[in-house]
Design a protein around this nucleic acid. Sequence first.
DNA 1: ATAATAGTGTCTGTTAGACATTATCAG
DNA 2: CTGATAATGTCTAACAGACACTATTAT
Lengths: 245, 245
Amino acid sequence: MSETDFLAGYDPGAYPRPSLTVDLVLLGLRDGRPATLLLKRAQQPHAGRWALPGSFVALDETLDAAAERVLREKAGISGIHIEQLYTFGGLDRDPRMRVVSVAYLALLPEPAFAEALAGMPGLSAAIIAVPWSGEAGGPVAALSADGRRTGETLPLAFDHADILALAILRLRGKLDYSDVAFALLPEHFTLRQLQDVHEAILGTRLNKPAFRRRMLDRGWLEPTGSREAGTSFRPAELYRSRNPR
Amino acid sequence: MSETDFLAGYDPGAYPRPSLTVDLVLLGLRDGRPATLLLKRAQQPHAGRWALPGSFVALDETLDAAAERVLREKAGISGIHIEQLYTFGGLDRDPRMRVVSVAYLALLPEPAFAEALAGMPGLSAAIIAVPWSGEAGGPVAALSADGRRTGETLPLAFDHADILALAILRLRGKLDYSDVAFALLPEHFTLRQLQDVHEAILGTRLNKPAFRRRMLDRGWLEPTGSREAGTSFRPAELYRSRNPR
DNA sequence: ATAATAGTGTCTGTTAGACATTATCAG
DNA sequence: CTGATAATGTCTAACAGACACTATTAT
């Protein structure tokens, strides 16, 4: 930043600058698998391909504010967990001009995911076909399956497949040592639901007693005292997150 | 990014955009403590305060390339580990104009650190007084001590204290499940040196047998067969990283 | 009682910390 | 031999996976 000295007396608009955008991975769960909300591109370039919702960053808004605005304007929701992921600055991300994009990850609990899908006509849900984990690198994150037509692979626009892949990998990494998983659950939830979230993100089955022990020992959970309703079997106890969300 | 449609036929330069920079945390170790290389600002704003080396991002270079250029031009070195850290986009980071900065972390083994310090007149080494770990949030990362005058706290320019704090926290988090530590060591090193790196970054003493077992079990290390020279006691075995750097 | 899932007890193998001990070098 | 540090053996506590078992609800 020392070169800013050089610019002290200059018109800030006089220098060529990359465009700056934010792109959001709107991540939720569908049928026990991670899913994301995408927009089908109508125009060139990449017409017909699927893109993450995004927007340019205005001069008078922070990056976080821009991300929250996209969440409001393109998904119609707010008040959910959102975090910065990585900044993508490849030269040919967009064929028209130089665009640097700050990627964000938003975690949508089921009601928010459904609300966005129902309330915003352009959005579609896409299951993320998780590349089997562990191995770093590799091709990563093919997409498949829209709301109804399941099985097909969706072509993604720009470098959005990379962004999506990174989102899943980041989430996997944070899952075990942070409380992000709660961001994908309603305020009250059962331990089974929590385990389902972990299994969906990790793409793995987990050991029930061990999982329960770990979670309860963490001190992040608080029993509500009540139990789930409407089951035809023994109802599970409901917990809530102890940390204020 | 869907709004890029809107701009398809427009002059890309016609819209107001934030300036985009990269700022580098040049991290090495001095006397068993993490240290960083800083530049003292001569002009306003923040004249007299200390800043991370940085630069504007050119239209025809990637973010990574910009970071490597800063490494070359401001530290006089290259070929070392460098990774993107986080992107800072607060509105008032720089009082003159809106500047969004992509922060990078560069890890300098001792020779590179010394070479940069000796070869680039403006650079100073500053010990990072690590805020005692564990607790998240908090004030974080006060600086102290230049090369000679130890003990005093250096005032940092802009939001560079935040960047520095994040760099240390990120490194601590990655230390145990990745091989970043090797990036702070020469090609051949002893297990004691490796442990010293870990202890410096974590700000903690580690258990020797346990540390050795863990490291050797990871499979990241390869014995070179030779031993260190010039000791007045039993020389330690030298290892190298198995992964190609 | 049955079906179905919630929740727990317990065994075992793995791993980390603590501590003591042995090994190996220079002089 | 002494001094200093490298390197290892071993005990113990903490913890995860596996598996079987008990508990509790609706019907």
